[in-house]
Design a protein around this nucleic acid. Sequence first.
DNA 1: GATCCGTGGAT
DNA 2: TATCCAAGGAT
Length: 359
Amino acid sequence: MCNQAADPEILLAWYDIHARDLPWRVPPGADLRADPYAVWLSEVMLQQTTVAAVRKYFLDFTDRWPTVSDLAAADDDAVMAAWAGLGYYARARNLLKCARVVARDLDGRFPDTEAGLRDLPGIGPYTAAAIAAIAFERPATVLDGNVERVMARIHAVEAPLPGAKETLRGLAAALTPAARPGDYAQAVMDLGATICTPRNPACGICPWRQPCRARDLGIAETLPRKTPKAAKPVRRGIVYFAQRSDGAVLLERRPDKGLLGGMLGLPGGPWAEGEIVAAPPLEADWQITAGAVRHTFTHFHLILDVAMAPVDEGIEALTGRFFTPEEAGPDDLPTVMRKAYQFAAGQHRPSKVPKTDIA
DNA sequence: GATCCGTGGAT
DNA sequence: TATCCAAGGAT
């Protein structure tokens, strides 16, 4: 009943042995300074995104753009294409903005304080604290989904998120040590990712099992509680796949704001509940496959009709321009557009279309 | 504070 | 199949 308080040093000792091997991470005890650029890039990529998904993007980015100044000098289109498939595309736009501020105004060096970092595009409270702690050894309080879950459990906080967030932040701050704050931040997140998982937490091997109040109460797996989310509505839309005999396909750059902002996509109309209304981008013999692509975004389901037509070379479109496969292909598009592109192209090569992508 | 913004894996 | 969820930020 009288639990001892959770001890950061016990967690650090666990981390010294069990730290995950991640490409952007300096292992504990290596006595090396983490590269702020690598920390920043990885943390932005990891926002609401799994380690498994980030890994190859991080390696690709650091291979092509080894420093923040290299990234700042990159073409927007190249960066957006490299980000394609990772999601939350505002991150890529802000990544470039941030890199250019750092390269141009800060001599290529990231600010070494939480407040200084927080002022940069795409860096919010979490990312500022993470970079300050991991790259600059500042005792910043890192509060992400992992830390929220671990704090809610060891303190048995039953109030639901997001309302309980500031309570959890206070508990996390009280526990943050002055020594090894970077390792500590990564240790709590590793713990949440590998032991104190949302479902089936491995309490039996948890270094903090002794002080964990939720474990005592038998409610660890039920925490943190969350207020229910609204159901996703179904929206419908259409995209137009116009292809020339040389293989070039009509694509358009989407506006910076809004869904899939700044990314290339197939032209089409707005996506909405109810009837589909969208004029084709050019006159052609359109063949429509209804409901060809289904895709679920954060807050709605999409059923997308795909219209296809062969067109003559030299034809002019009302929007966008024709891209040869060498200029831009499905891999350069956000996933829903990649599905539509591959569906249409796959009418000639069915093996290219994954079965699960098609209604 | 509420809403918008992607994706893929696990269950 | 449906739902949840992940190292969140901007508005």
